[in-house]
Write a protein that binds this DNA or RNA. Structure first.
Length: 209
DNA sequence: GACCAGGCACATC
DNA sequence: GATGTGCATGGT
């Protein structure tokens, strides 16, 4: 499936963010939200010169909420951004470099304890901000692999993740590209109803489903 | 005007 | 532990 997707779409160059902090902010803002709206919110933060650890930590919550408004759930997301900078300050003295020295299992555990960071957001941060070998599962992943008969519908996050890590070669590079391609395919072909004839994965669909 | 989008926390059973 | 609900904007 990976090779079919790569052949069809080519490299996706993920994450679409320039710095680890920008990846983290994007991961929080994109929760159940179209990426285009996240881009507007990030642009607002940049324009206000608040897309920094100090900026996010120091800005009034109402200001943050106003700036991230285009990404939806803006009151909650303002709280979540602040929860992250609080965590970064308390746990690593506000230093992403120090945070980057933490070992993956401990870091994942700590991230999951932060308000607003669940499994997908934690794993996106681990893989795309810190280059850790963690397979990110999202709504598209669940949909595509359940529609291909690999897992049951509504299989829990951890189980889908286990299914994939047991089968996919364990490479950060591959995890990065595969997940990005899954999102690409999900957006274009697997939204409300399957469009299997045009989808690069159609041969798998026809063979197994 | 309905439906959807790269979830998560919280309440309730 | 499973299931339901609120959160909210912008595109199709």
């Amino acid at each position: 499936m990976y090779h079919e997707l790569f052949r069809a779409f080519g490299p996706q160059h993920w994450w679409p963010g320039e710095t680890p902090l920008e990846v983290i902010v994007g991961a929080i803002l994109t929760q159940n939200t179209a990426w285009g709206n996240v881009e507007r919110a990030i642009a607002n933060l940049k324009k206000a010169r608040l897309l920094s650890v100090e900026g996010l930590a120091g800005a009034p919550p109402r200001t943050l909420a106003r700036l991230v408004r285009p990404s939806g759930y803006f009151n909650q997301k303002a709280v979540k951004l602040r929860a992250f900078t609080d965590f970064l300050r308390d746990e690593y003295g506000g230093s992403l470099r120090r945070m980057a020295r933490e070992r993956t299992p401990a870091l994942r555990r700590k991230l999951l304890a932060v308000h607003g960071i669940g499994p997908e957001t934690a794993d996106s941060i681990l893989l795309y901000a810190f280059g850790r070998r963690v397979f990110v599962v999202d709504a598209y992943t669940a949909r595509i692999f359940s529609r291909h008969g690999c897992v049951e519908a509504r299989t829990p996050y951890a189980e889908i993740q286990r299914y994939l890590t047991e089968r996919v070669p364990r490479s950060v590079r591959l995890y990065n590209e595969f997940h990005a391609l899954i999102v690409r395919a999900g957006k274009e072909f697997c939204r409300k109803t399957p469009h299997c004839d045009a989808c690069p994965l159609k041969i798998f669909y026809k063979k197994y489903v």
